[in-house]
Simulated assay, not measured.
Amino acid sequence: MLGGYLQYGLLVALAIALLVAAVTDWRRRQIDNWLNLTIALTAPLFWWASGLSLWPDVALQLGVGVAAFAVFAAMFAMKWMGGGDVKLLTAMALWIEPEWFLRLLIVMALAGGVLTLVLGAWHVTRRQRDRLAIPYGVAIATAGLWVLGTHYLPAAQSALVG
């Protein structure tokens, strides 16, 4: 039962961390390294609380994290993403099981597209000439919260009750 409470508490903490990431990215166009590092370093505690086995579960999570970092670091090198976004997605890949991480990416892309259209229209309406900076951490956090709310939190809550 302690694992169930710990798992639920960690998921709530992750949700709070995602909200902090969204707010700071919106305000400053920056996601702090300490926040990304905290998310990444608490993933093993979540694995333990969730009862993941070292093989293949934890190995798969680490593999997805490495693959996410490689892909998103390449996107950063091409100036398609910010560094904080890369680190946040990599940290999230350590938490979210692979199938749900793909769903997170789809929801993130949709939310990011809407965010870009809205901010782009606002930018044009105000006749601003400077470069438009999209706080993509908002889209990442939205997708992460969606995954937590639809998949992880209901499962953790039923584990506590049942």
Rank of each mutant, 00 (worst) to 15 (best):
L62N: 01
G65W: 04
W80L: 15
F46Q: 12
A67S: 13
L52F: 12
G65E: 05
L89M: 13
V71M: 07
V86K: 10
V64A: 09
V66E: 11
F72D: 01
K87S: 03
L60Y: 02
V66S: 09
L45H: 08
M78R: 15
D57G: 13
W55Y: 11
A68V: 12
D85W: 06
W80C: 05
W47N: 10
L52H: 05
L54C: 00
W48Q: 13
D85V: 05
A74P: 08
F76H: 08
W80F: 09
L88A: 07
W48C: 02
M78G: 06
G65K: 07
G63S: 12
M75S: 00
W80E: 09
P56K: 03
F72L: 14
Q61A: 13
F72M: 13
F46K: 10
A74M: 15
G83T: 01
G65F: 04
G84K: 03
L88E: 05
V58S: 04
W48P: 00
W48R: 14
S50D: 14
A73K: 06
L88T: 06
L89Y: 01
V66Q: 10
F76S: 01
M81T: 11
M78F: 15
L62D: 00
D57T: 09
G83E: 02
F46H: 15
P44Y: 08
A74D: 11
L45A: 14
W47G: 08
F46R: 12
L54E: 05
V71I: 15
G82C: 13
G82L: 12
S50F: 03
A74S: 15
A77H: 10
A74T: 13
A68C: 14
P44H: 10
V64W: 10
W80D: 02
A77G: 02
V58F: 05
T90K: 03
L88Y: 03
W80V: 05
L88K: 03
L45N: 07
V71W: 04
G83C: 01
A67M: 15
L60W: 09
L88I: 10
W48G: 00
L89R: 07
W80I: 05
P56C: 02
A77W: 11
A49D: 11
F46G: 14
L89F: 06
D57K: 08
F76Q: 07
L62H: 01
D85T: 08
W80P: 00
G63N: 10
M78V: 12
G83L: 02
K87R: 09
A74N: 12
G51D: 01
K87N: 04
A74V: 14
A59C: 10
F76A: 07
